[in-house]
Amino acid sequence: MSVRLDGPVIRLEGACRVEDAEPLLSFLQEEPGRVVDLSAAGGLHAAVVQVLLALRPPLAGPPGDPFTERWLAPLLAGPPPG
């Protein structure tokens, strides 16, 4: 399972595919303050990225995947543009 809840943290592990967007969205909708940990995540499907972009949850530390770290992390940080 690529998306799992570990206490207050949502951990994304391995390559996250389109279907993983749904549980991620559920976990975030249940508790809006939850932190998302991408340190063990591989490539993220656009559906997963979309959820992160829309909801802007806080990220627990830098993502493990180089592409995500270089290109997506800066876009996911901070509040959504007005």
Partner: peptide
């Protein structure tokens, strides 16, 4: 690639109304 920006076609719906499988990027 030297730069990347991601935006939304329609404004992001709030959490409850979002359809994760409709691409809005």
């Amino acid at each position: 690639m030297i730069a990347l920006r991601l935006g939304a076609r329609q404004p992001w719906p709030d959490g409850a109304a979002m359809d994760p499988f409709a691409c809005n990027l």
